[in-house]
Simulated assay, not measured.
Amino acid sequence: MDLLLHLDRTLDELDPPRWGDPPADATHLVRKVHALRRVPLRELRPADLRTLVSQQVALPYVVPLAVRLLAEEPLIDAYFYEGDLLLATVNVPATVWTLLPQLGEELRAVVSALPESAHADLPRGAAREIDRFIAGLQRNS
């Protein structure tokens, strides 16, 4: 899949079925995810990507955007803290990396290139999550 061909399209267009309006009593997060599915991919900001990745929405379309961003700035502070998009992305289900093995390898290279000092600034347990991601890729290779 050539992601660049889809940047003007929305997740509702690319990942059927289209989602209707959220229920009237929906949480802020649910309303936000519904709204993000109607935004063209090229307009999704880092915080939007972190939200969609962590909520596991349309991952075959969202993960490539996240990995592309992480290749440029691995510890980007998408919304909560430095490295939040990275941690959300390394925690996607292993089936995503089976579907997108080249992106998995690209992200593994990015993560492996981080200096040890970068791990100290991440939340407790982050190094373990990153190690689990790398080990999972190695098992699937």
Rank of each mutant, 00 (worst) to 15 (best):
H119V: 06
T98F: 06
L122M: 11
T95L: 10
V57I: 15
V67L: 05
D121P: 12
R108V: 02
V111N: 01
L103A: 03
S117W: 13
A118L: 04
A88D: 07
I76F: 06
D121H: 13
L59G: 06
L107I: 02
T51G: 10
A94C: 03
L86N: 02
A127L: 15
T51D: 10
P93C: 10
A94D: 11
E73P: 03
S117H: 11
S117M: 08
L69V: 01
P123Q: 13
A47S: 09
E72N: 10
A113Q: 12
D84Y: 00
D48T: 08
D131S: 15
L49T: 07
A118T: 08
T95W: 11
S117I: 08
W97L: 01
P101R: 00
L99A: 11
G83V: 00
L114I: 01
V53C: 04
G104I: 00
L100T: 01
L114W: 02
Y81Q: 07
A71E: 15
V57H: 10
V67Q: 05
P64T: 09
V110W: 01
E105H: 07
V62S: 09
L49A: 07
A94R: 13
V92G: 02
L69D: 01
R50H: 13
L52W: 04
L114D: 04
A47C: 07
